[in-house]
Write a protein that binds this DNA or RNA. Sequence first.
DNA 1: GCATCTGCTTTAATCGATTAACAGAAACTT
DNA 2: AAGTTTCTGTTAATCGATTAAAGCAGATGC
Lengths: 329, 329
Amino acid sequence: MAERPQRVTIADIAKHVGVSTATVSYAINQPSRVSAGVVLQVNEAIALLGYRGNAAARQLRVGRSEAIALIVNDASNPAFTAFAAAAETEAALTGRFILLANSSDDPTRELAYLRFFESQQVGGIVLAPVGEVPEELSEIANRGTPVVSLGNLGGASSVPFVSGDDHAGGVVAMKHLIHLGRRTPLFVGGPLPQFRYRHQGAEQVAAAAGRVLESHALAAATVKEAFRAISAMPLEQLLSFDSVFAGNDLLAIGVLHALHDRGVRVPEQIAVIGYDDIEFAELAIVPLTTVRHDAAAMGRAAIRTAIGPKATTSQTYPPQLVVRRSTVS
Amino acid sequence: MAERPQRVTIADIAKHVGVSTATVSYAINQPSRVSAGVVLQVNEAIALLGYRGNAAARQLRVGRSEAIALIVNDASNPAFTAFAAAAETEAALTGRFILLANSSDDPTRELAYLRFFESQQVGGIVLAPVGEVPEELSEIANRGTPVVSLGNLGGASSVPFVSGDDHAGGVVAMKHLIHLGRRTPLFVGGPLPQFRYRHQGAEQVAAAAGRVLESHALAAATVKEAFRAISAMPLEQLLSFDSVFAGNDLLAIGVLHALHDRGVRVPEQIAVIGYDDIEFAELAIVPLTTVRHDAAAMGRAAIRTAIGPKATTSQTYPPQLVVRRSTVS
DNA sequence: GCATCTGCTTTAATCGATTAACAGAAACTT
DNA sequence: AAGTTTCTGTTAATCGATTAAAGCAGATGC
């Protein structure tokens, strides 16, 4: 509990060693430029005095920080976990740090974080947008901060993205249901931008097979909302569907529980397929069939894009079907 | 896609309006000190030119940023979700931002983030430590950055903490099992610091009731590890236990699945109780009995502590038992 | 009429680190 | 031996914003 309200600066180190601040700075950042002896003394002094540097001062001079911002619309969705972990690892490789921010599906908050991070002069911004890609993001890019959108969501089109191929994913999911002989599918998730392409892909396949894909809108993409939606549906209407394609696994889990509570057998009466392959998909009451992307590869790619000076190339990753008991008994 | 590599500074605004930079700064930060007309013009110019400020410059001068760092050891654990959401809301109230960082249970990474955030001069640091509270954290506190430990974990003792009352939680959990007539409990989670007090509380109650609480160590606190542990246990040994207290809900879910796969009935043959009451506890194959704390209150308290200039008061929150079917059929 | 006060604005120092430009000494060329 | 490199170190400008102190009108007081 020592009293040391004053922060240790580079000047303290310089005084302690008996050289100029410039030399200390060189010793820290370009050790080869100064004599070995001085480097040693500087390092000793740093350890002794507890010097930690002042990132603000450094940034002001250099113009960028070693941080990369990752703004997500819903940090509680486990689908981000694998992505974020890979991003973290990739960032650590080059000595960078990931700053995760949660916009909680609030566009206002998203904007606030975007502005905050731009003024912080982070080295790059990865945004999983609440809705469409906001204009602000492409403006930030124009002003010099590398940005990437996580997911291909429409909106500001000049922003590069890293995304799973959602359209193809929707195709794969619906083909699976059709192959299983299902004829009356329901899409749960409604017109939310995050699900747009998944829905379109599925719809296209359904139409090609002469089926109609009904769509049920949700107020929010949460387990609870999906549960409520299915629970509130008249049984007769519910049983007019023989399969459900949920916009993501959280919704699918909500659907599974609602069906379970109402005594509807899965997959016999209704088959259920989700999207993302989160950890809990496999652990659901009925193990969940789902579609996955290589989240680790996407995480790495997003960071690499957000680091490169002029990032303009978008990348798309193919879907992979993961069959479990919720569609095949 | 306009070409504007140059960032807009306060000087650009000043020139545009025809005043000094000082006036612009006052107009932004203390509008009452400047004439209304100028404030108006400044705001117009800001909007027109797209001024976003330079947080580094501001920080260098002011000494602190409006960001609060939240470093967690495992961002994929849903137990953090409610906590983080409340923290976010509380921070937003005072115009602050939460920067979430994930140490991924790596002490090296934890240290790197601590140093990074200190050099960033964030307004406060909330740390959910990998193991015990590191010395570095209390040194950071001594150097002037407010810090809080999330969880009471031993280690650097001078650091204030916000924590559930884990000892009491362990007591509540074990009392529940004993009331149900269980005689041979197993603790899953081993000697990990995060579970220390939960285990101690449970052990104490078991001893008082004349029972022995066996403990099974895990290499990591993950669903998979718990699953493996139970799956690898000889059936005879496994069935010598009539109940399992898992260090947290993730472990409990792993246990539930392993038991399910081996055909052990829950709760008839083995009752299972977890800790944290994560969203998926209720949604597990057998809805999970668990112990919860008021995570939202803890999130708010942590932020308030991390904001106050001299935070030294620790706060503990009482546990609450949530009974579901994994202990009572 | 002269001093004082008020309101608005500017001047200039400052935060802590980086780095171009420079300088002195030692080492190397030819 | 004179010129050229190389090696170390210093000086001083700079990044962009904040803010104490000072300046300067115009209003008010007596």
